[in-house]
Structures are given as structure tokens and as C-alpha cells.
């Protein structure tokens, strides 16, 4: 337990190690730690900002969506109106066309009836002439004429 020059030797070791730590150990490590602290605080504030931005974006998206829905509803409404109008127009056109066709057919029928009547008239004349010939050629017999007239009428 002697006190001797070891005390000086140890003081020199001590000074050397403290100096080494002061120069090469402490500054880089504490610098890195502080830099990391800075980074983390920056990251946290960025996260806060992002959260706020997200809320804003969500609000904007909601309003956009609402607007789009309104627009879509309007468009659909318009389309519906337009389609019903088209259907209505088509119905109208069809009805007119139908009327026209019916009129045309009736005119045709009328014409054909007239034609047939004309033809019949002509044939009746011929038959009347033939009947009269038969009447003039034979005895007037009421019964026989009647029978002939009946035949004539049946031929009509």
C-alpha cells in the first residue's frame, strides 16, 4: 500500500484516455445522436402535416364525390326525359304512318270495289241483253219469266 510514482503514471493514463474520448469518441457519437433526434422530430412534424393534408384531401374528395353524384343525377334525369320524348315522338310517327297506311288501303279497297262494280255493270248489261234475247225468242210465261228472272238475279 505504498504511495509512489504509480500515481503519476495513472494520472497520465487518465489524461490520455480523457483526451482520446474528447477528440475521437464523444463528438461523433453525440453528433449522430443529436442528428437523429433532429431527424425524428422533423419526421414527426412531417407526419402531423401529412395527417392534416389527408383530412383536407378527404374533405375535398367528399365534396367532389357529392358534386359528381349531383351531376350524374342531373344527366340521368335529362337522359330519361330525352328518351321518353323520343319514345313519344316515335309513337306519334308510328301512329301517323299507320293512319296513312290505313287510308291508303281504304283508298285501294274503294278503287277495287269501283272497278269490280264497273265490271259487274258491264257483265249485267251483257246478261240483260242475253236474257232479253231469250225472252223475246220464247213465249212470255210469267212462271217461265219469273224462273228466268230468278236465274238472272242469281247470276248477278
Amino acid at each position: 500500500m505504498n504511495i509512489n510514482m504509480t500515481i503519476i503514471g495513472q494520472a497520465i493514463w487518465f489524461a490520455l484516455f480523457v483526451f482520446f474520448c474528447m477528440k475521437f469518441v464523444w463528438p461523433p457519437i453525440i453528433g449522430a445522436l443529436n442528428e437523429r433526434k433532429q431527424k425524428i422530430s422533423e419526421g414527426l412534424s412531417a407526419a402531423d402535416r401529412a395527417e392534416r393534408d389527408l383530412v383536407l384531401a378527404q374533405e375535398k374528395a367528399t365534396s367532389n364525390l357529392k358534386e359528381a353524384k349531383e351531376k350524374a343525377a342531373e344527366i340521368i334525369d335529362q337522359a330519361n326525359r330525352r328518351s321518353s320524348q323520343i319514345v313519344e315522338d316515335a309513337k306519334e310517327a308510328a301512329r301517323a304512318e299507320g293512319d296513312r297506311l290505313v287510308a291508303q288501303a281504304q283508298a285501294e279497297i274503294g278503287r277495287e270495289v269501283n272497278g269490280a262494280r264497273e265490271k259487274l255493270r258491264a257483265e249485267v248489261a251483257v246478261l240483260a241483253i242475253a236474257g232479253a234475247e231469250k225472252v223475246l225468242g220464247g213465249e212470255v210465261n210469267r212462271d217461265a219469266h219469273g224462273k228466268m228472272l230468278e236465274q238472272l238475279a242469281a247470276q248477278l
Binding site: W13, F17, V25, W26, P28, A32, L33, E35
Partner: peptide, 24 residues
């Protein structure tokens, strides 16, 4: 003196290695 110096050098070496790798 040898043990205290040796241990001190060991300590410095360990922390110096860490200091060289120090990163944020």
C-alpha cells in the same frame, strides 16, 4: 499500471469503433 492502461486502451478501442460507425 499495465492493467489500468490495457483496460483503458480496450475501452477507447471499443468506443472508437462505435464512434467510427456512428450514424444518424
Amino acid at each position: 499500471l499495465a492493467w489500468s492502461g490495457g483496460i483503458g486502451i480496450l475501452f477507447c478501442l471499443i468506443f472508437w469503433l462505435a464512434a467510427r460507425r456512428a450514424t444518424s
